[in-house]
Write a protein that binds this DNA or RNA. Sequence first.
DNA 1: ATGTCCCAATTTTTGGGA
Length: 297
Amino acid sequence: MRIATWNINSAKARQPRLIEWLDRASPDVVCLQETKLSDEAFLELFDEDLFRRGYRVAHHGDGRWNGVAILSRAGLEDVRRGLPGDPGFPGPEPRAISASCGGIRIWSLYVPNGRTVEDPHYAYKLAWLAALRDVVAELAPQGPVMTLGDFNIAPTDADVWDIAEFEGATHVTEAERAALGRLHDAGLLDLMRERWPDETVYTYWDYRQLCFPKNYGMRIDLTLATADVAARARAVWVDRAARKGTGTSDHAPVVVDLDEAPDGDIGPMVPPPSSRGSSARGSSSRAGAGTRRRAST
DNA sequence: ATGTCCCAATTTTTGGGA
């Protein structure tokens, strides 16, 4: 199952690039942020194109700002709009939506930007992240969970092109990183860093000052997941091609490929005959580990 | 020149947000 997240910075402005990307990348589940549309306007624009490609749609937006969505051709059950405990600014904003897709509770998140550390939006950002932590702490013990989206936090200094440029700025503060740390404490792993611990990886480049050509980027779009999901992650990457050319978002998609769940709907995995009763399925070899058959009875 | 883009409205220019 291929799962992606992409802050598209206006679904309306990005329509051709989004459709083109769906056809090229062929994701099964897509978490979108900053659609900047109402639910009605989003469906009006995309329903036909997405239906024809086999996607079902859950959108949560109110028009001008924010707006999140999940597109899925791997099931879309039990859709929940908003974040329980959302502090609001002052009222709730459409920054979270979740659904069960292919047995995973998937969240598409657009964390408040924070603006500056003195701005009330910064306190809002931290309060919003605290509410998210509580949701994760409740859900993570219950089954597979993924939280994907624009977190507006660079987890470490290595996740920005030049930390000196961020003196006193949001996205890199101790408090923001501590809030992210509490998501990890609640059971979420950073799939990109699990797979690529030391690579330079960016997901966002400002439109201004030729940031993309110079690779002045930030890794702020994160793919977090519980350990059961992390164990299935076969590949994790940033689709930089989607950031190139004209009419692009300032963010690139982050894509995760998952192996099938070992106890998925095809039935429980049992050892293949060749290794049954032997020690061949230990950590030294994965041969045969992908073989699945329906258990008898 | 912030080497930009997006939105809405007080719409053909401006202000706000990222």
